[in-house]
Design a protein around this nucleic acid. Sequence first.
DNA 1: CGCGCATTTCGATGCAAACCGAAGGATTGA
DNA 2: TCAATCCTTCGGTTTGCATCGAAATGCGCG
Lengths: 223, 223
Amino acid sequence: MRADPDLAAAAALLADPSRAAMLTRLLDGRGWTATELAKVAAIRPSTASAHLSRMLDLGWITVHPQGRHRYFQLAGPPIAAFLESIALASPGMKARTPGEIRASAALRHCRLCYDHLAGRVGVAISEHLIQRGWITEAFHLTHEGRQALGELGFHSLADEGRGCMDWSERRLHLAGPLGRSLAEGALASGWFLRDPASRILRPTPLGLERMAGWLHHDWAGAS
Amino acid sequence: MRADPDLAAAAALLADPSRAAMLTRLLDGRGWTATELAKVAAIRPSTASAHLSRMLDLGWITVHPQGRHRYFQLAGPPIAAFLESIALASPGMKARTPGEIRASAALRHCRLCYDHLAGRVGVAISEHLIQRGWITEAFHLTHEGRQALGELGFHSLADEGRGCMDWSERRLHLAGPLGRSLAEGALASGWFLRDPASRILRPTPLGLERMAGWLHHDWAGAS
DNA sequence: CGCGCATTTCGATGCAAACCGAAGGATTGA
DNA sequence: TCAATCCTTCGGTTTGCATCGAAATGCGCG
C-alpha cells in the first residue's frame, strides 16, 4: 500500500540543473549518448554518466546499446507529459543573447512536445480540429475527421488522443496516439523541418501554404 | 522574453522533504501558520519560516496576516494542479503503521484536490456526469446538467470546468470552477466530513445514501 | 505599559551530493 | 593484436543548503 506520493523524491531528480538540461534535451524524443548529453549540460562525461544512471533507476529514461554507444531516451509519453507539466510552473530562464531570443521565439512558435505538435501552431491546429468536429472535445478522432484528414494526406491515424497542457500557450493541445500519428504525418509530408539540436520545428514553404489554406491563418513572418 | 522554462528552479523547491510535506499539507486549500507547518514537517519554526519565504518568492503560496498569526495558503488552482501532476510521477512513500495504511486508503477513496473532489469517488462522479450528458467531455456544464443537478440540490454551479489528472486513479476528474462549486455544494449538504488534519473526505450516511441512489453504486464498506 | 506568543533574522554547523580526474572495461577498426 | 573511442566506476574535493539556537521584531492581551 502506497501512502502520499513522495513529491520530494521525484523533484530531487529534476532539481539539479545538469539533469534538467539533459532531460530538456531528451524531450525531443530522440536518443542521445552520454557524451552528447554531457556537452549539453556543460559537465564531464563521467558526471553525466552518474546522473543518467540515477534517472535509469527511477525509470525516467531507457537505454539502447549499439556497439560502443549507449543511446539514452525518455522512457515514454507519461514522463514527457510530466516534464511538460513542470515547465508550466517553472519561472523560465532569461534569454540573453540574440541567438537565445530567436531560439526562444521559435520554440514558442512550433515545437515537438516529445512526439506531438506544440506551441502556437500546435494549439491552433488542435483547436481548429475541435472547431470543425474532426476531433471531440476529449481529443478523440471522429468519423468525419478520419475522412477529412485522409483527404489531406494523413493516413494511419490513431483514434485515441488526449489533451496536453502547453506551457507556452497555457492551453490544451492534441497529444496521445492520435497526436503522435498526426505529427508523424506532418513531418513525413515535409510540412516542418526538425532542428538537429533542439525540439524546434520550422515550417517549410509547403507547410505554410497548407496551413494557410487549412487554418485560414497566415503564419508567414510569425517566426 | 523567456527562454526554455527553468525546470530545475521549480523542482528544487519541491526537492526538499520538509517543503514537500508542508506543500502536501497546504494542498487541502486551507490556511496554516508557520508553526503548524513546522510541526507537520518535523522542523523548527525558524527553519519553516525560511522555507515559506522561499516559496513566497516563487509565488507558490500567499500569506494572510491576522493579528500575530500569518496564515499561509496555496497561491491558487494552477499551483495545486501542478503539485497533483507531480504526485502522478512520484514513487510514493511506503505506508508503515496501521494508521498510515488506513489514512492512505481513505485518501485514495475520497479527498479534496485543493478545491474539488478526487479519488475513487471523485472520478466515479465525474465519469457519471459525462455518461449522463450532464457535463461535456471537456468538463463544461450542459443545459440538462444544470437542471438535473439543481433538482439534486446543487445550485449556483459554475458553467466552466476542466479535467484534472487523478494521481491515485490515473484518470481525469472534474476540476475548475464547476468542480469547485460542486464540491462546495456537496460539503454544504453534508455529504462528506472534512478530516481536520488532512485532505481526506469521509462520506456521511447521508452522502452514501445519495450517491448510492445517484450513481447506482454502493460505496459502503469501501472505506 | 509590559509580558507572552508567533514569527523572522542571523551566524554557525554539518551533511549530502555534484563535480572532476584517473583508471579500467568494452567495442570498433586498422 | 594494437590503438582509439565511448562509457563507467571510484576516491577525493568542494560547494550548497537544511538545520538549529539565540536574539530581535511585531502583535495582542491583561
